[in-house]
Design a protein around this nucleic acid. Sequence first.
DNA 1: GCCAACGTTGGC
DNA 2: GCCAACGTTGGC
Length: 137
Amino acid sequence: MARYWLMKSEPSKYGWDDLVAEGEGVWDGVRNHRAKNNLAAMEVGDQCFFYHSREGLEIVGICEVSVAGITDPTDPEGKWAAVKVKPVRKLEQPVTLKQVKADPRLTEMELVKLSRLSVAEVRPEEWDIVLELAGER
DNA sequence: GCCAACGTTGGC
DNA sequence: GCCAACGTTGGC
């Protein structure tokens, strides 16, 4: 059973378009224990929202875990986790942070509650609600 | 550009 | 082992 996640990236560093251009990207550089735990829990086939932080502030697309449980290549000590993801598709309409915050059903999302967490878990019901906000339901 | 929230570091 | 100082992240 696939699980759902949300990954944040600054578009000026690595945006949705970069992932699409490369076809597959390594999600590394995470140096937060909670985020690391989420990374380590991911399995191949899990679905992830791709969120643009700092600029845009919106969920722009969906990607999928293609390789799970790798160690972060940017970490010389090999203590941190990473995964590889590939783009699935863009959302019909991006879902902004504002929309998420304005929806009473989404106030418990890790994205809202732990705003600085770069890899957050998304509950199945939250996943559906976000798709609905994207005009896909 | 500012500042709040959070994590980490280091002195005691 | 506590906690103040500091650095980083990310929304505004």
